[in-house]
Nucleic acid binder design. Structure first.
Lengths: 144, 144
DNA sequence: CCGTATCCATTCCGATACTG
DNA sequence: CAGTATCGGAATGGATACGG
């Protein structure tokens, strides 16, 4: 079962919010993406979320293809929730929210780096075919 | 009155979601940002949202500093809701959600362009001090 | 350890009716 | 037009107990 629908809305932002717009959804994904959490109890302790709610969110993520649920095999091992590529690419959403909160609410404790060399990373608006930076105020939406 | 809090969470994404994480919030802002809507009835007709809910969202946005409410003056004119700079800069969040939905759910009807010359625009991950593009899978979060 | 089940309280949402 | 008032229903939350 997915989240609530935005039936009149045909834009892709609405489609995305139908999958990750519920309370806790993006924070669970944040823990999966940036803290490498994979276990039920890790998420629960991190967020203080009720277990029934967490179970539903994880189930919804699996149904939506954002996560894969690995059951423990006969030989033992652990059950865990792993992000798919589809889920992983929501990183950019978390990053823009974080950057906005850092600037407009309060600087938070987290900074994003390149894993290989630890250099700081930014999300930048640019013209698609070149390197020209664009200011957010200049962006407009057009029908395709 | 703001949205629900994530009290245990100190990260900036949680702070941002406290302001725009409720149902309809980001879609109202999308209409304000990309359709230049400013009136109550514009939002209501666009979204099909119940008027009491819309009233609360707009009130919350004003309280959070995302919008400014211009009342009609004695000489007439119209009441309207205008984005502040703080609200306007959430454009990047809508854009990342849209890009993700376009890629992973279904291509939507909207494309982002530069207002001046109508060239396509992208959000790109880059090293902060140079032009080197970064893949989303390589991004890690560190404590500041 | 990883959930599921249940109960109950609170909050949120949607529909509708109504007012200046 | 721009909201407010009201109401019922749905979703969410917390606590706790229980089972594989």
């Amino acid at each position: 079962m997915l989240g609530r629908l935005y039936e009149n809305q045909e834009c892709s932002a609405a489609r995305a919010l139908e999958l990750v717009g519920e309370r806790w959804s993006l924070l669970i994904l944040r823990d999966a993406m940036f803290r490498n959490y994979t276990r039920f109890l890790q998420f629960q302790k991190s967020l203080g979320i009720a277990p029934n709610i967490l179970a539903k969110r994880l189930e919804d993520f699996v149904a939506a293809g954002l996560m894969e649920h690995r059951q423990p095999g006969i030989s033992g091992g652990q059950a865990d929730y792993l992000l798919t590529q589809k889920g992983l690419e929501l990183k950019a959403v978390i990053m823009t929210l974080t950057a906005w909160g850092d600037k407009w609410v309060r600087p938070g404790p987290i900074v994003f780096r390149n894993g290989a060399d630890d250099q700081p990373i930014e999300l930048q608006l640019r013209l698609a075919d070149g390197n020209t930076p664009v200011d957010v105020a200049d962006v407009v939406a057009r029908r395709r």
